[in-house]
Structures are given as structure tokens and as C-alpha cells.
Design a binder for these strands. Structure first.
Length: 895
RNA sequence: GGGCGCAUAGCUCAGUUGGUUAGAGUGCUACGUUGACAUCGUAGAGGUCAGAGGUUCGAAUCCUCUUGCGCCCACCA
């Protein structure tokens, strides 16, 4: 049978994926005899298509899940998607716009139909893509944040919070996106610096005495002056005490403004006088409440000016209005000056439009009461962050948490389960009279009996459903027996929930720490009484090779699907894991994926080599057994043991990069570079068994990182042997520590022969030998002659020697250790070059000796340093001296 | 304004409680292809561990300051 020299990931990955899906390899259920391990996926938006960030995030999760699965846990990775309210609505609106229609043209019902149909058509693209990267989710459990069952959880949570007065409705200033035409939470309005101007406007004043003058106020948003209802000064600011008794007129609008005093005014900033626009600025809003000012809303929902401004400004966009107003004011000489100014402005996280602070009637969640427990569990390390520094960031945010605006003026999402009585509800009353929160439409108002009820038109913030993700996906809430909602599987679901919950690890990006992670912790504690997960892994951002964040708008993205197509999903995963040091950003360029591709090919060829040998020699492998024919077998098994231990340890502490490097290094640089080279010309039944054993162990070790090729080769081994092994490598277990049947010193001696190869290769270079074959003389004690006879075959090959002779005396020594000395017999050599190399080495050792000597002569060192360190220094010293002596001798002999 | 973090080879990064001759991948240079793999092998060059000070017998590692980056939060209009 011919095996191609190059691995073809494309064909293989497709086939393996089909098999995994067909046989539900990753389905997990409650099993009493296994410990559970569970992860919930950060549900990607249905609008999403796979980008590198997803690839990174999900590969980390997959590594953890596959690892745990192999270690014998019942490992569940819960998959699903997020309905992504605003994002999805935007997409469908855009599609509609192509037909020349708006959502209002088609109406709410029709628009919702379109949303669902879009979801049905495109909403699972990203799921298919996740499958392609090898994500071993339990696909049978695929959840969606607007599933019926999930919606029940959302409703339940709303009602509970409402009934406990943790949700309220009121008129407050919120972030308004004029493009999406909805309210946003504070988190959804990302602060960014914007180049702008600080304008100094002159407002006419009439003093108590009747003098006419002007005061100057600074603003970055001149258009808001049309909503001014006061000017404010600091009570301690003597410069303006006269103002208190004066009359200030708002230019253009012509109304008079109240004069208020407040500590919030910084006398140092601007002129020390602040224009107050209570309806369009969060600070001014507070001032307005405090000083009982008039709130004049001057904007429509699309941020054009409304009927509350002079007619010639009505209908203008806020930025047009700004320009027009500035011009008009300038004409009237009411602009004192303007200065360039960078202001921080909120931007809609969905469309990047500058948000407008706007007063509107919205629903809010009181967060402080929810935060308390969530602070405690993190302080007590019941939930741990990796890297640790995020703990502080989390706590800092939690301590300063603000109420959460949860209503959105869009049509895609969970409808707010609230009806208002048209007869007795008064939004300004501040009480709950006439507000009915219920799962289904109530018959009549419990307060006044009216049947004129109207449901709130708004939907809930997407995150108001996402924050329930870790438990809602398990079917929470579990209805009591006999209730209408009790499904047939309720009992089973509840048991599963109790088995898998809390989940173990959450893997996410720092961007959604507040949006999602913090809120999940709060929700879980509040509604289930448990932490949602114990470990939070926060990985870095994917950047291009210049360090710029990858984003579609910048055009610097590398499409993971293209990488999969070109190099394979394993290559993608390998390189990402190799490069993604814990929590640090990942810098990518396409050539980074060559590393992964090359490694796959290396594995492929190692397997090809072993089995071609097995076939050549007509060997049958029918048991997985290991024998100690010579020291090399013990040596490689010892390396394997250490690698398995290190690799496991690294994964357990979430150092995936470290784990993969260990496994990689072992496979390539121990197994392939040494063991396979050593056994190459000495291949027999024992070596066949051993190399298959190591190969399988390596595949197991590597499987969490590169699942496809390891699965493929595992199945090839099955086909080419009579080994009784499991169906899928993912069920074959994790390599165990093997007992090594050899005395420890022979292992040390074996490492010396490997060291000898290295040193002789090094010498060959220094001697400029090129391809010239040399012969070697080895002087060793009688006891080790047998050892040398056992190994000199492969040894001479690896150092390109014709022969190795064991002799009693050496005329010169090129290499020396505790056990033997070696002389190189050379026909021709570049002695000048060698002499130079020797000089360099002699220098090197001399300076090393000086260094250790200095230490050892230092009384304080001898007095204070631990004994083992001193012993180490002494050993170094004597070793260095010997080496130096040898080199000097060699130099003499050569010259 | 507050908080957090980073600075080690040309590039991307490791370096776990202070004790190595400071490592890896990639790039570069030289040599090497008659049966695993050129998506390979062997070797080499390349670092005053950002700078200054301090603690210590000993600092890439701990402390202070400086410089240069990055991120998060925040109501100076």
C-alpha cells in the first residue's frame, strides 16, 4: 500500500468530521460513574461568520474539552447561538432596504417573519464553521437564545426581578443610537476620543442693576444650547456671585435661563460657567433633577431637532444643526472663540454612530444588590480568572456598577413581558400601579379592573438573555410537577443540570467581561444560587503582524476558513495554540500557519516511516506492549512520561501554549529526531512495538490540539495492525505514566551518548569536515564496552563515521565525559578554522571559570548560599576546568 | 482623572516561588536529497534581558524612579 509523502488535510478533515457527526462522538449525558466536566460556548451571533477570534476562542475550549474527555470525564461542551438583537435587525433591515422598504413599511409582524426566516437560512452558518475547525461540541444540544424553552427562562427572570423590585421603569437619560433608534446600555456605548472643538458661547445677561453684558460658556456640542434651561456656577466662585441675581437669556431661543450653583462645576474648566441641558447630558440631567430644572427634549429619535427648537432648525440633523447654529451665532457675534478639543464620546457598539444622551422612558435593572454576591465569590476565589489580573478589573467594575438599561426599541428579541393599563398607569408616578408583568397577556388590570391593556412594544437587551446562558441552556427553570409548563423531560433535565452545573471553565475575550461574564455571575448566583463556572480564561485579541487588531473594516483579517482550506484545521489550531500565550494577544500572518502544516506533515511521515518498516519486515502488531531491548527504549519512554506529566500539568493550569510546545517538542525532537533515527537500521519486532506505542501515546497527547490528523492516523494504525483499540482516539484515554524497567544510571549513560553525538557533530562543523566520513576511537572502561557495542551502529551513522573502535589509549581527546573519551581520526581538516573555534571555546570556558571562581571565593556566597547551590557551582567549576584543560591540550596537539 | 498591564535574539514570544553557559518558533547563513519527511536534516551567527538606582552572597526575575508603548474605567461642560 502506497502512502503519499504529503499529508492531505482537506480530504481527511472532511471525512473525519462526517464520522464524528454521524456517530455523535461528542454527545455527553449524565453518567453516574464518571466525573462531569462542562463548558458552555460563548454563543456566537447568528449574524456572525467565523473569524480568527472565534477560532482562537473555540480552539481553546476544544482543547480543554477533548483533554478532559480523554482523561475520563463526561465532558460536555454546550453549543449555541445568540439572537443578537440589534445586529440581526440591522442585517435584515439592510436586506429590506434593497427592496426599497423599511421595517415600518412592512410592519412588525411581517418584519419578524423576515427575521426568523433570515435566522433559519443563515443563522447556523457559524455553527457549520465551528464544526469545520473541529469543535467537539455536543451538537445534539444546540441552543438558541430565542428558543421557546430559553425564552421561558428570560421571562421567568424578568418576573422575578420585577416582583422583587429589582427592575423599574422610568424616565432617565440613556445612550441613544440615532441610527439604530434604540436605547443602549452604558456598556454598549463605547467611549472613544473624537476630534472636535470647544466653543465659547456668549449668553446675554442683564444684571440686577440693569447693565447688559455677556457671560461666556464652553461647550463641545453647541446644538444642545437650544435645550438649555439653566447656567451653573460653582458656589465658591466669587467671580460670578453677581450672576445669581442677574437674568440670563438664551440666544436664538430667547428664553431666560435659571442660574444655579453646584459643586459639580469646576471653576478651572472653561470659563467656570456651565450651560445646563438637562435633557441631553448625563451630568446636566443630574443637575436638572437636583435643582428642579425644566427638561426640554430637543431631538427626535433620529437625532434631528424637533419642534421644541426655533422653526428654522427643526428637522436638521444634530451635526447640520451644529454647523448652522455656529454660523448664526458667529454672525451675531455670540461666539467668543473656539479651541480644538478632544472629547470622549459614546459610540454605538453595533454601528459606531455617536450616541446621543437622551431622556426616555426605559426599563432598568438595579445592579448593586446583584453585585454583592458576585463580588464576594470572586474575592474568595470561588471563581478564578486566568490571567489573574482580570480579577482586579472585574472587581473594580463591580464596585462601581451602575443600573442596567435593558429595554430596546427594536423588534428582534424577547418582548418585554409587561402590559400597561391604559386607565390607571402613570409612567411619572414611580410606582407599579397599572403595570402588569406576566408570562401571558392578563385579562384585566389587577389595580382597576380595566381591560384596556397594552403590551410594552420594546424588547429586552440581548445580554438580558445571554446572562442566563450557563443555566438556561440546561433547561432552567425546571417547572414544578403538575404545572402546565412541565415537559416530559423535566426530571431528566433537572438531574442533568445538577450533574453538569456549575460548569467548569468559561473561555472568553476581555471585551465581553462586563457585558457577559460579570452578568452571568450575578444572574447565576441570583437565580440558581450557584456560581456559573469556577474558572474564567480570558484570552487575548487577534492582531495582524503589525499588531493592529484584525477587523473587517480595516481589511487586515486573515480568514480562518481560507487557512483551513489551504493548510487544514489542524494547522490553524496548532499555530493558534502555539502562539497564544496565556492571555496575551496573538499576532498573525499567513506564514505563521506553516508551522502547523509542517508539523502535521511530520506526524504523517513518522507514521508512514514506522508502518513502511513494519510492512517491510512483515511484522504483526497485535498488542500494545513495550519492551526494554536497550537503553534507547527506556530513554524515549522516560521522555514520554515526563512529557505526559508536563503536558497535563500545563493544561490543568490553562497554559495551553506550554502544553502544545511540550508535546510538539517531544514528538519532533525526541521521538523523530532521535528515537526513530536510532532504530532506523535496527528495526525489529520490539522496536516496532515500541515505536507504535510511542506513536499512539503521542497521538493521544496531541489529539486535543490537532484532532483530525491524530484521529486519522489512529485509524490508519487500526487498519494496519491487529491492535484492539477504540473506535475514536477521543475515547482511547490519555497516556499513562509507564514503569521504566532499567536502572537509573544506564539512563544517564544513554543521555551521554546522545550528548556525544551532538558534540561530535559540533566538532565536525568546527573542523570543516563537510561530508567527509571519519573514524572514531572510544576509550571507556570495560563495563561500558558492551554498551558501546550495542549502540555504535546508529552512533556512527548519526555522526557520519565509518567506524567506531574501542581502544585502550587515545592519542588525543576531542570529547570527554565521566564515562568515556573520544578521538576523531581525520584525514583532512580545516585546522585554521578549527583552531579559531577552539580559541573561542577556550575563551568561553575561561570566562565561565572566572565567574564561578569569583563566586566560590566570595565568603558571603559560601556563608549564605544554600549548600546545593554551592555544590552545583563547585561541580561546574571542576567540569569547566576539565573542559578547558582538554581544549588546551587539543589545541597544542593540533598546532 | 483613576486603574491595570507590557518592554528579553531581525520578528512573535517562553523563562513558574531570585541560583541555566538566558530558550523556542520563525527569519537569516553554511552544508547536506541513493527508501519517513526539503512541508526535511545538521550546524552556525544573532541578546550589555528598555534605562538608572536599590535590596541580596547572587537579579531577566523583587523594590523605587525614568522613558516608551498598550488596554480598561470615568459626568471637566
Amino acid at each position: 500500500m502506497e502512502i503519499p509523502t504529503r499529508y492531505n488535510p482537506k480530504e481527511t478533515e472532511k471525512r473525519i468530521l462526517q464520522e464524528w457527526l454521524k456517530s455523535s462522538t461528542f454527545h455527553a449525558t449524565k453518567k453516574t460513574n464518571k466525573d462531569p466536566f462542562s463548558i458552555v460556548i460563548p454563543p456566537p451571533n447568528i449574524t456572525g461568520i467565523l473569524h480568527m477570534g472565534h477560532a482562537l476562542n473555540n480552539t481553546i475550549q476544544d482543547v480543554l474539552v477533548r483533554y478532559k474527555r480523554m482523561r475520563g470525564y463526561e465532558a460536555l461542551w454546550m453549543p449555541g447561538t445568540d439572537h443578537a438583537g440589534i445586529a440581526t435587525q440591522n442585517v435584515v433591515e439592510r436586506a429590506l432596504a434593497k427592496e426599497g422598504k423599511t421595517k415600518d413599511d412592512v410592519g412588525r409582524e411581517e418584519f419578524q417573519k423576515r427575521l426568523w426566516s433570515w435566522k433559519d437560512n443563515y443563522g447556523s452558518r457559524i455553527i457549520d464553521q465551528l464544526k469545520k475547525i473541529g469543535a467537539s461540541c455536543d451538537w445534539k444540544r444546540l441552543r438558541f437564545t430565542m428558543d421557546q424553552a430559553y425564552s421561558r427562562a428570560v421571562g421567568e427572570v424578568f418576573l422575578q426581578l420585577f416582583n422583587q423590585d429589582l427592575i423599574y421603569r422610568g424616565n432617565y437619560i440613556i445612550n441613544w443610537c440615532p441610527r439604530c433608534k434604540t436605547a443602549l446600555s452604558d456598556e454598549e456605548a463605547a467611549h472613544k476620543e473624537v476630534d472636535g472643538w470647544l466653543y465659547y458661547l456668549r449668553y446675554p445677561v442683564e444684571t440686577k442693576e440693569g447693565d447688559k453684558k455677556y457671560i461666556s460658556v464652553a461647550t463641545t456640542r453647541p446644538e444642545t444650547m437650544l435645550g438649555d434651561t439653566a447656567v451653573a456656577i460653582n458656589p465658591k466662585d466669587k467671580r460670578y456671585s453677581w450672576l445669581k441675581e442677574a437674568k440670563v437669556i438664551l440666544p436664538i431661543a430667547g428664553r431666560s435661563l435659571k442660574i444655579i450653583e453646584d459643586k459639580a462645576v469646576d471653576p478651572e474648566f472653561g470659563t467656570g460657567v456651565v450651560k445646563v441641558t438637562p435633557a441631553h447630558d448625563p451630568v446636566d440631567f443630574q443637575l436638572g433633577k437636583k435643582h428642579d430644572l425644566e427638561f426640554i427634549n430637543i431631538m427626535n429619535e433620529d437625532a434631528t431637532l424637533n419642534q421644541n427648537v426655533p422653526e428654522n432648525f427643526q428637522g436638521l440633523d444634530r451635526f447640520e444643526a451644529r454647523a448652522a447654529l455656529v454660523e448664526l451665532l458667529a454672525q451675531k457675534k455670540l461666539i467668543e472663540k473656539k479651541e480644538p478639543y478632544n472629547l470622549g464620546a459614546g459610540h454605538c457598539y453595533r454601528c459606531n454612530t455617536i450616541v446621543e444622551p437622551r431622556i426616555s422612558l426605559q426599563w432598568f435593572v438595579k445592579m448593586k444588590p446583584l453585585a454583592q454576591e458576585a463580588i464576594k465569590v470572586v474575592q474568595q476565589d470561588k471563581i478564578k480568572f486566568y490571567p489573574r489580573r482580570w480579577k482586579k478589573v472585574y472587581l473594580n467594575w463591580m464596585f462601581n456598577i451602575q443600573d442596567w438599561c435593558i429595554s430596546r426599541q427594536i423588534w428582534w428579541g424577547h418582548r418585554i413581558p409587561v402590559w400597561y393599563c391604559q386607565d390607571c398607569y402613570n409612567p411619572d408616578s414611580g410606582d407599579k400601579k397599572g403595570i402588569i408583568a406576566a408570562k401571558e397577556k392578563p385579562e384585566k388590570c389587577p389595580d382597576c379592573g380595566s381591560q384596556k391593556l397594552k403590551q410594552d412594544p420594546d424588547v429586552l437587551d440581548t445580554w438580558f438573555s445571554s446572562w442566563l446562558w450557563p443555566f438556561a441552556t440546561f433547561g432552567w427553570p425546571f417547572e414544578k410537577r403538575g404545572t402546565r409548563d412541565e415537559g416530559r423531560g423535566t426530571k431528566e433535565k433537572k438531574e442533568e443540570f445538577e450533574y453538569f452545573y456549575p460548569t467548569n471553565t468559561l473561555v472568553t475575550a476581555s471585551e465581553i467581561l462586563f457585558f457577559w461574564v460579570a452578568r452571568m455571575i450575578m444572574a447565576s448566583l441570583k437565580f440558581t444560587g450557584k456560581i456559573p463556572f469556577s474558572d474564567v480564561i480570558i484570552h487575548g485579541t487577534v492582531r495582524d503582524d503589525k499588531g493592529i487588531k484584525m477587523s473587517k473594516s480595516l481589511g487586515n483579517v486573515i480568514d480562518p476558513l481560507e487557512i483551513i482550506d489551504k493548510y487544514g484545521a489542524d494547522a490553524l489550531r496548532f499555530s493558534l495554540m502555539f502562539l497564544a500565550a496565556s492571555g496575551s494577544d496573538v499576532f498573525l500572518s499567513t506564514d505563521k500557519f506553516l508551522m502547523g502544516r509542517n508539523f502535521s506533515n511530520k506526524i504523517w511521515n513518522a507514521n508512514r516511516f514506522i508502518f513502511s518498516k513494519i510492512q517491510d519486515k512483515k511484522i504483526n502488531i497485535d498488542k500494545l506492549e513495550y519492551s526494554f531491548e536497550d537503553e534507547s527504549d527506556a530513554w524515549i519512554l522516560d521522555k514520554l512520561n515526563k512529557t505526559v506529566a508536563n503536558c497535563s500539568k500545563a493544561i490543568e493550569k490553562h497554559r495551553i501554549d506550554e502544553a502544545i510546545k511540550k508535546a510538539y517538542d517531544f514528538f519532533w525532537h525526541s521521538f523523530c529526531d532521535w528515537y526513530l533515527e536510532i532504530i532506523k537500521d535496527n528495526f525489529n519486532q520490539e522496536k516496532a512495538n515500541n515505536s507504535v506505542f510511542i506513536l499512539i501515546s503521542s497521538l493521544q497527547l496531541l489529539h486535543p490540539f490537532i484532532p483530525f490528523i491524530t484521529e486519522e492516523i489512529f485509524s490508519l494504525i487500526k487498519q494496519n495492525s491487529s491492535l484492539p483499540v477504540t473506535e475514536s482516539i477521543s475515547k482511547s484515554g490519555w497516556p499513562k505514566q509507564q514503569k521504566i524497567d532499567i536502572n537509573p544510571e544506564s539512563l544517564v549513560i544513554f543521555t551521554k551518548i546522545i550528548d556525544s553525538v551532538d558534540k561530535i557533530r559540533d566538532l565536525r562543523g568546527d573542523l570543516g569536515l563537510g561530508q567527509e566520513k571519519i573514524s572514531l576511537e572510544v576509550k571507556t572502561n570495560l563495563g561500558l564496552r558492551e554498551f558501546w557495542n550495542r549502540h555504535k551502529g546508529w552512533f556512527s551513522k548519526l555522526v557520519a563515521a565509518n567506524n567506531v573502535n574501542l581502544v585502550d589509549n587515545l592519542e588525543r581527546v576531542f570529547y570527554q565525559n565521566k564515562y568515556w573519551s573520544i578521538n576523531l581520526k581525520i584525514d583532512s581538516a580545516n585546522l585554521d578554522k578549527f583552531s579559531q573555534a577552539l580559541d573561542k571555546k577556550i575563551d568561553n570556558f575561561s570566562s565561565l571559570i572566572k565567574k564561578t571562581e569569583g563566586k566560590l571565593k566570595n565568603e558571603n556566597f559560601i556563608k549564605n548560599a544554600p549548600k546545593n547551590i554551592i555544590a552545583k557551582e563547585k561541580a561546574k567549576q571542576s567540569d569547566f576546568s576539565k573542559q578547558l584543560m582538554r581544549l588546551k591540550n587539543l589545541k597544542e596537539i593540533i598546532s
